[in-house]
């Protein structure tokens, strides 16, 4: 995907992680690579904001028709970095006024990072270019929503989709995209009753488009992207704007607004005596350890 004629690629280093841009004007293709350098590829708030910014820039880049998003190191992403969650709230306006971050700080974060006009999910969903996700390994939380909001999703056999937050805390986020993709009862399966879907399960449910061996993914992504770049710019832009109108029919806008409100409320969630405090464990020990501990607690 990196052709000799590509114009300057850019890497935005954000602390421990990066969002790398590979831009190929000749092929009308841009690739955004999520790379945290850590196991599971967690995304920091800084990485999320950079990814949103890059999408905004590519949205007005007339040479680019298709945007590929992928992870590095075998995983797309295991989700937002739990270690910094508390600090992100504290850094938001009104977040440090008292010991516990205020509702307005939490709401600001929900909007700013995910659901608001400049939030990541909105930037992906309302991108006027064709978006193509190359899914590998863990596609959890943020990874799942990238799969929902991107137009096309190609996965390899290692990909798994789901949300540990839903499993161990409760469902937050927008429901309308998932239900519109797979139907209500299947959606509830992923929301409530299953911890995650394998790539095959995701394909059967209608969440993703194709599954293939890991070694075939890169070439297939390139092929599909090239296919889509054959469409006129005017045609892509025209259809995209009308899609945004029809998303309203699916009540996506309501879903996003509700998600922001409930997401803020959810961070006040109180664990009963005897219930496993997943959020604290994830913050202190990391996501994988928290999932293991939760399993042991259940047994």
């Amino acid at each position: 995907m990196n052709s000799p004629t590509s114009s300057a690629a850019g890497t935005q280093q954000e602390g421990l992680g990066s969002i790398r841009l590979e831009r190929d004007a000749q092929q009308h293709l841009a690739t955004l690579v999520v790379s945290s350098g850590r196991s599971g590829n967690p995304m920091t708030a800084a990485m999320v904001r950079t990814l949103s910014r890059r999408l905004a820039e590519l949205s007005v880049d007339d040479d680019i028709k298709v945007i590929v998003i992928r992870g590095e190191g075998g995983d797309l992403t295991c989700g937002a970095d739990p270690a910094e969650a508390e600090q992100v709230f504290k850094d938001a306006p009104g977040g440090a006024a008292k010991r516990v971050p205020s509702q307005r700080a939490r709401l600001a974060v929900m909007d700013d990072l995910w659901w608001g006009p400049d939030g990541l999910y909105t930037r992906v969903l309302r991108c006027p270019k064709v978006t193509l996700l190359a899914a590998q390994g863990l596609c959890l939380d943020v990874g799942l929503y990238l799969a929902l909001c991107c137009d096309l999703v190609l996965a390899d056999e290692t990909a798994v989709f789901g949300s540990p937050r839903w499993r161990h805390v409760g469902v937050d986020g927008d429901l309308s995209m998932l239900v519109a993709a797979v139907g209500l009862k299947r959606a509830k399966d992923l929301l409530i009753f299953s911890s995650r879907w394998t790539a095959e399960q995701a394909l059967d449910a209608g969440l993703i488009d194709e599954v293939m061996p890991a070694e075939a993914l890169e070439a297939r992504v390139a092929h599909l992207a090239a296919f889509c770049t054959q469409v006129m710019r005017d045609a892509i832009a025209a259809e995209k704007r009308v899609v945004f109108a029809s998303l309203a029919k699916l009540q996506i806008g309501t879903g996003f607004a509700t998600a922001a409100a409930v997401g803020a409320w959810a961070s006040n969630l109180h664990f009963q005596p005897g219930e496993f405090n997943f959020l604290r464990e994830a913050r202190d020990q990391g996501l994988e350890a928290a999932i293991d501990a939760a399993r042991r607690h259940a047994e």
């Binding site: 161990h168 509830k188 911890s195 879903g255 959810a266």
Partner: peptide, 27 residues
């Protein structure tokens, strides 16, 4: 299946159902 769902914390169950109910009526 019921027990898998029952592992979600009580507040989380409330939040999940709140979201789902709101969603149903938008459809």
């Amino acid at each position: 299946a019921a027990q898998a769902a029952a592992r979600i914390p009580l507040d989380g169950v409330a939040m999940t159902k709140l979201l789902l109910e709101a969603f149903l009526d938008t459809q």
